[in-house]
Amino acid sequence: MASDSNPDADAEPPEPTTSDDADRGDEDALRRIADRNPTRLGVGRSGPRPTTEALLEFRADHGVARDAVHSRVSDDLLKEFGLVRLRTRVADTDQYLARPDLGRELDADSLERLERDCEPAPEVQLVVSDGLSSSAVEANVPQLLPALLDGLEARGISVGTPVFVESGRVDVMDAVGEELEADCCVNLIGERPGLRTAESLSAYLVYGPERGSATAKKSVVSNIHDGGLPPVEAGAELVDLIAEMLDAEASGVDLREDDREFRTE
């Protein structure tokens, strides 16, 4: 959105060009650029304010983003895929936002349930977390998970008992993976919602999960949603990536030689 604090932004509009055609030409070009781009371009203004339409759209998108943060993932989804419900030490959304450290550790009940209900020492441990967007989980997991599970099964890779972690941060996968002594752990987590989509999911992967390990040890496949990497295609890509990680016994920068080369230019 345009800044509303800069008085210069409201200065006289430029002199109209001499020909109507030239004016129209510019408008057409702007329309083409705006059509190619999902961001808010050329929404116009009314005096110093956004137009009513643009303002309402902005508020609606903002509302969707807020809902994504504050809503819960439904029990139906967890039941459909047999996900064991766990939670972190976070008490509520405000604390989740303020205390990332609490979102990385499971509460006592969940640790117990992990030991009781989940298969130990799998090759791959799957974690689904709401993160900052429950909507992302609801929108993408139903297409992603079957592609991922079938693909791993076809390659003979053992998958433990998949879990769902409420109020989870990315690194909660380290706690889950370490407790279960998994070779490799995957966290499908809702991304911070934006004003364009509130449904973007990321998949973080780590070989040899360990609490407190460096972020550089993690691989990531991001921007999973209908307008980005389609979830079903992401599931298939994760199969290949997991097979590569298990084979190389590494993840993150340890996995890809070329990721370690920093460009000097």
Binding site: P230, V232, E233
Partner: peptide
């Protein structure tokens, strides 16, 4: 045309 070759390829392989 759609971005789904990897998923379709894996399904076909099976």
């Amino acid at each position: 045309r759609q971005n789904c070759a990897k998923a379709l390829g894996q399904l076909l392989e099976r």
